[in-house]
Design a protein around this nucleic acid. Sequence first.
RNA 1: GGGGAAGUGGCGGAACGGUAGACGCAGCCGCCUCAAAAGCGGCCGAGGUAACCCCUCGUGCGGGUUCAAAUCCCGCCUUCCCCA
Length: 830
Amino acid sequence: MRVAYDFEQVEKKWRERWERDGTYAAPRVPTGEKYYVLEMLPYPSGDLHVGHAKNYTIGDSVARMMRMLGCDVLHPMGWDAFGLPAENAAIARGIDPETWTRSNIANMRRQVRLIGTSYDWSREITTCDPEYYRWNQWLFLRLFERGLAYKREAPVNWCPHDRTVLANEQVVDGRCWRCDSFVERRNLAQWFLKITAYADRLLADLDRLEEWPERTRTMQRNWIGRSEGVELSFAIADTDARVDVFTTRADTLYGATFVAIAPEHPAIPVLKTTISKNHALQIDAFAESLRSKSELERTSLMEKTGLFTGAYAVNPLSHERVPIWVTNYVLAEYGTGAVMGVPAHDERDFDFARKHGLPIAQVIVPHGFSDEPAPLSQAFLDDGRLVASGDFSGMSSARAREAIAQRLAALGAGRVNVNYRLRDWLISRQRYWGTPIPIVSCDACGEVAVPDDALPVLLPPNAPITGEGSPLARMPEFVNASCPRCGGAARRDTDTMDTFFESSWYYLRYLSPHDASAPWGRDEAAGWMNVDQYIGGAEHAVMHLLYARFFYKFFHDCGWVNGADEPFRRLFHQGFVLHGGEKMSKSRGNVVGIDETARRYGVDAMRLFLLCVTPPEDTSDWTDEGITGRVRFLNRLWRLCRPECSEREVLAAAKDDWRVPPPASSPAEKALIRTVHVAAKSARDETTSRRFHYNATIAKLDELLNALSAVQQETPQSPALAYAAHALPLLVAPFAPHVAEELWERMGHATSVHLERYLEPDDSVMALAEITLVVQVNGKIRARLTVPAGLTESEALALALAQPNVRAQLDGSEPRKHVYVPDKLVNLVR
RNA sequence: GGGGAAGUGGCGGAACGGUAGACGCAGCCGCCUCAAAAGCGGCCGAGGUAACCCCUCGUGCGGGUUCAAAUCCCGCCUUCCCCA
C-alpha cells in the first residue's frame, strides 16, 4: 500500500517552512490563556523508534490542539546529555564523550523534527553545555548554603581491580561487569541532598495532585514510606552505650526477645569491650562476609542469617536482658541500623527466632481470648489486648502504644517519632561525563564553595577515561586549586553530579534558555509555570518525578517561583509500542525505526497510526497491516479534498464564509455537515478533558470521509461537500500536520492552518431531526422506532404501546410503571 | 506478601448506568477492468428460523444493586506493572 501523493516532498516542504517562519515560537511571557506542554527530556542514546514517536506524537497533538483552541502554547525540547553511556562509549571505543553525545543529539534532533513536531526550537537546551550546567552548580551552591547539600561517608560499589566506583546496574552477580572481579562495598565521602527534609510535604501534597495517575501517586507514597512510631533506646549491658531502635509497635515492647543490629552498627566497637575475644573475632568474620554484599542481596536474595554477639541489651521498661545479634537483614543505612526482635508479633522476627532458637514471648492476644495463650504456630500481627506486659497488661494495642510512648518519654528512653523509608539523595558520581561539583576542599577551611563569579567549573577536555579510577581525580591540572577563602593550596572535588540533578529543573530553563544572569527569569516563570501537561514514561514515576517535586518546593521556599509549589499540574504516562507482541530491542531484532517508517509511509501516516490504534496510555502493537488503514485514510483525504482545491477562486471569494455551514438539501448532506461537527467535538473534548483518546477522534474522521464519499457520488456539486472538504484540513491538522497544511494552502490560504482556530462544534448542526426510539419491556428491547426528535413523554409512551410486538410482550396487561429517557428510550415494566 | 491497572468478535478497539461490537485491520461476495492493483458497494459474535421480521444466548467466572449493568458494589480466576 502506497501513499498516493508525494508525501516525501510535501512533508519536507512544510518542515522547512515552519522552521523558517518560526510558526511555533512561543511568546516570552503569555498574554492570553497559557498552556505549557512538555514531554520528558530525552537521553540522546542514538536512533529513535516508533515507540519514541508515539510519545512525541501525543504531546505534539495536544500542543497543536491547544494552540488551535486559542492558547499561548509553550512546547519545548532539549537533551539530557550527561550520563554513563557516553562514558562507556569512550571506554569501549576511545570516542570522546562529548563528540559521541553531540553526534547523537544531531541525529535525534533530525528525527524529532522529521516526525513533524511543533517545538519552539529557539528554546532548545542541552544539559552538557556549560551555559546549562553552570546553573546546576549555582543551584547546588544554593542548596549547600541552606544546609540541604552535605557531605558524609557512605558505602559504594567498588571494583578493586579497576579502582573505580560502579553503579548498581554495573554489578552483575556481585562481580564487576568489565573485569569480573568481586565487587566490594567501600565507604567514600559523598554529597547528599537532604530530600528527607521535604519528606512530609512531598507526601502530603500528593493528595493535591488530583490529575496525576493514581498508581504514580501510590508509588511515590510507598517510596516515601512514612510510618509513625516510637524511637527508643536499649542500654547495652555493662556499658554506657545504647542501641536506638524504631518501632511502629511499641505495644509489643515486652515481647522483645532480642535486638538485631547491622554488622556496621557504630555500637559494635563499644560492645566488643564486654565480650570474649572469640565472639569479637566471629563478629568481624561475619561483617567481612557481608562487606561486599549489596543491600538488595542482603535483604532480598540471601537467607536471613545472624550471629549472637555475646552482648546483651536491656529493655527500657521490663529491664529484661535480651541478646544482641548481628544480622544480614538489618541495614546500617536504614533507620537507626537496629531493630528490636519481637518474634510473637512480627513475621520476619518469628522466622529468625525459630531458626536460631530464640524465645517467642506473646504479649498481644486477640480481644476476648484468655491471658494464657497457646504456643503460636505463626506470628500474631493484629492489634489486640496486652498480656504479660507489666502495668500495661489489659490495655488495647492502640492505647498501649500511647501509654508506653509516654512512659518512655518520661524516663528519657524514647520519643514519638516519624520514620521514612525515603533516604537522602546521593548525588556524587565518581565519573567524568557530568556536572563537576563546585566545591574545593581545603585543609584549613574544609569544604568551601566555589564563588558564583567563578562558575562554571568547566569539565576539562582530554580526560583519561579508561574505566580505571575516577578520570577527574587523575588530572592534577583540574584537582589542584587554591582555596577561595584562605588562598592556600586546596583540592577540587573530583565527583560529578547524578544526571537526575539536571532533569529536576530543566522545565524552568526552557523559559529563559539564553539568560546569562539567572537560571530562569522571574516574569517568565510567573507567566508560564506550572507545567500544564507533562508526558512521559511510567518508569520515571518515582525518582525523576520525586526529585523534580523536591527541587520545585525548594525553589518555591526560596521565593524564586510563585503559585503552586508543584512543578507538574497534570501527568500522563503513555503506553509502550510492542512489535510482534514483544518490546522492541536491538537484540530481538524487532525495532521499527522512524527513518524507515517515514520513508515507506510518510510521517502523517505514522502519526495517525500511532494515535488511532489504542488509547494513548495503553500498550499498542506495531503492525504493517495496521498502518494500511491510515495510508488509505490519507489517500481518500487527498482525493476528496482535491476537487475543491481546483475551485480555489470560488473558495477564496467565499473565504469569510467557509466556517458557516450551508443549508442541507438532502439527508446525506445533513449527515455530512453533522459529522464534521461531531469530529470537531471529539477532538476538542478529548483535549480539554485531558483524556487524549484521539483514537476515538480518528474514528470520527473516518466516518467523516465515509459521509463525504457518499455525498460526492450522489451530488458532486453540493455546497455541503465544499464545506466539509474545506473543514477537513482544519480537523486533521493536529494529527497529520503536513498534509493538512498542504491542502490548506491549495485551498487558497496564505497563512498556516496550525495558527487557525479549530472548528467550533455547533449543537444545532449536530441535532438530529429524527432519532431512533428504543422501546424496552422489562429492560429488553422489543422495538426500535424512527421518530421525530423532541417527542413528549406521553407521545412516546403512546407510540410504544401501539407496537404489536410490545403489546404481545405485555400480554394484554397494563405496564406497572414506565421510564422515559427523552430521545432515547421507553422502558415499560410489567 | 502488599499496592495499582486491566479482561468485549479472527485481531486492535468503541460504548464515561440507557440500541453492545462504532471505526479500522484481516476475511468473504459483488461492481469496475482484457487482467491485476487501486477504488467503490455489500456481508462479517453464537444458535434457532424459509427469512435481513422475530426469538434465545452473549462483554473472564459467581453473586448483588437498578426500571435498565461491559459500565456500580462484593467474592473468585487470569494477565500486566510497581514495591517487597
